[in-house]
Amino acid sequence: MKVLFVDGTIIGSKTGAVLDTVEGYIKEKGNEFEIERMNLADYDHQFVDGRPSEQYNADMKEMVRKFEEADAYIIATPIFQGSIPGVLKNAFDMLHPYAMRYKPVSIVANGGTYQHHLVVENQLKPILDYFRCLVTPNFVYTHESHFDQDNRIIDEDVHNRLRELARVFTKYTEMSKDLSTDILDAQ
């Protein structure tokens, strides 16, 4: 099963540090996941403006291909100005509505205030619901106080929640194997 880890920002390193930690916990589960990392910072982004997909550059097409080929996702995002980064929303705007359908997704986010965890509930989850993803119920939100000066997670409660996220994500991937994609083929 292909799992795409999406680092949903072009600046900073905390989301990458959280993804590294989640990856370690997922690997501890002993599953057979093929994990690929997609750092949005590594791509030449174009503003999605409704033109035909073939008119976008190679990097934009590559991002879409990776989303489409993945069987499951861990999406990491910082919260900036009470919102997900525009670059992450722009990436979602490139995707066909069926690209992520019935595929498991877990969310990790980080921000500078404790209240910004609501962005996951009010912005990111509705986008993933539109795609009809199997969103795990236990997203993990981190705050800058959960990291040391080298961006290592130092809060034991955060580690426990990330372990639980990995456990639930693994169960969702098992469940998703039984979902038929025949509906997609018929459309």
Rank of each mutant, 00 (worst) to 15 (best):
K2S: 04
K2V: 01
V3Y: 04
L4E: 07
D7T: 05
T9M: 05
S13N: 15
K14I: 07
T15N: 08
A17K: 15
V18H: 00
L19E: 03
D20Q: 12
T21W: 00
T21I: 03
V22A: 02
I26K: 00
K27C: 07
E28V: 01
K29N: 11
G30M: 07
E32P: 04
E32K: 13
E32A: 08
R37L: 08
M38G: 03
N39H: 03
N39C: 05
Y43A: 08
Q46M: 14
F47I: 12
V48T: 06
V48W: 09
V48Y: 14
E54D: 14
E69W: 12
I75Y: 04
A76P: 05
F80Q: 13
P85V: 03
N90P: 08
A91H: 10
M94T: 10
L95M: 12
H96M: 08
Y98T: 10
Y98Q: 09
Y102I: 02
S106K: 02
A109I: 04
N110S: 11
N110F: 06
T113G: 08
T113S: 14
Q115R: 15
H116T: 12
Q123D: 04
Q123C: 02
L124F: 06
L124V: 01
Y130M: 09
F131T: 01
F131P: 02
C133Q: 02
C133A: 12
V135Y: 04
N138W: 03
V140C: 08
Y141Q: 06
Y141V: 10
S145R: 10
F147E: 11
D148Q: 12
N151D: 13
I153P: 08
I153H: 04
I154F: 06
I154P: 01
D157Q: 13
D157F: 01
D157A: 12
H159V: 00
H159R: 00
R161M: 05
E164H: 08
L165N: 09
R167W: 01
T170Q: 04
T173F: 02
M175Y: 13
S176H: 07
S180E: 06
S180K: 09
T181K: 06
D182E: 10
I183M: 04
I183A: 11
I183E: 11
I183K: 02
L184K: 12
